[in-house]
Design a protein around this nucleic acid. Structure first.
Length: 280
DNA sequence: CACCAGGGTATAC
DNA sequence: GTATACCATGGT
């Protein structure tokens, strides 16, 4: 395993990897294993060290550094410290959740994943993504555990829409996946948020998921039912406020560069305590 | 049985 | 521009 030494900080990998950002990580024997398109990333945090390895290509520094945004790590943690002193709920959320980072996930897998996420809960989304991998991905064994990679464009485009719908259990969203596959077939490398809105099944919220979790956008956050609950509960913002106006309010309140990470804290924090209405 | 889940589309006004 | 029905699937 490779080692990355953290400067006296502790990342909350449970929330970062198993929360709302990605649906492709699992925790086995205290190691996290993540399916990142053709690769598996294995990681564990012990004391102030991150131990990591990649498969099947070993020691893929480029992948690890990019996915975990290592080059921006301390800058981003600084932003969290600034936010904490500025807002009481962020302060509570950081106190409870510790340090979170926003991953930079590959565009194709992220787009398919969040198209599938619409109007469903996280366990069900996970299950569908896993179906994609098991049925259409490549088998790869790591530590005697069987994984399946996320299928690529060339593979998925061969699958009949009705078969895909039946096997992955994504229901009516299969036509949205098809639209995404056509988009990537005609798209050369660079993807912008405005392009994503041309895909059927992608509206404001899912486009923001992809922008934040894959394209590195920082000045918006996905406004789903949980984010709206957080805004209504903590900041008395009516949930009927227009989507774009809501983002503007967040930019004004938290600062333009902080909306994504602030939103991530509010999302993960309220999801834990919403039922009890008690926010320690 | 009703209602909900990291929503979006089509249609109607 | 805004409101509403509808969309599959599985869990509670």
């Amino acid at each position: 395993m490779n080692t990355f030494v953290l400067d006296n900080i502790n990342l909350n990998l449970d929330t970062i990897l198993l929360g709302g950002q990605s649906f492709s990580w699992c925790k086995i024997n205290n190691f996290y294993y993540g399916i990142v398109e053709d690769n598996i990333i294995k990681i564990r945090q012990l004391g102030n060290k991150l131990y990591w390895q990649t498969f099947p290509e070993k020691d893929n520094y480029k992948l690890f550094y990019s996915y975990f945004q290592i080059d921006n790590l301390y800058k981003n943690l600084n932003l969290i410290d600034n936010l904490r002193s500025k807002d009481d709920y962020i302060r509570k959320a950081v106190k409870y959740l510790g340090y979170l980072i926003i991953l930079k996930q590959p565009i194709f897998q992220t787009t398919i994943s969040f198209i599938i996420s619409s109007n469903r809960n996280i366990p069900l989304i996970r299950q569908s993504i896993q179906n994609f991998c098991v049925y259409y991905g490549e088998k790869i064994i790591v530590d005697d555990i069987i994984f399946y990679t996320f299928p690529n464009l060339d593979k998925l485009i061969q699958i009949d829409e009705h078969i895909l719908r039946y096997q992955t259990k994504i229901g009516y969203r299969s036509q949205y996946v098809k639209s995404a596959l056509e988009f990537f077939t005609n798209q050369n490398v660079f993807v912008q948020k405005s392009d994503l809105l041309s895909i059927k099944g992608i509206g404001n919220k899912i486009a923001d998921c992809i922008a934040v979790f894959s394209l590195g956008e920082r000045h918006v956050t996905p406004l789903d039912v949980w984010a709206k609950r957080a805004l209504e509960t903590y900041y008395s913002i009516n949930h009927k406020i227009k989507y774009e106006d809501c983002q503007k309010w967040l930019q004004n309140y938290f600062g333009r560069e902080n909306v994504a990470i602030a939103g991530q804290y509010l999302f993960e924090y309220i999801r834990i305590f919403y039922k009890t209405k008690n926010f320690p």
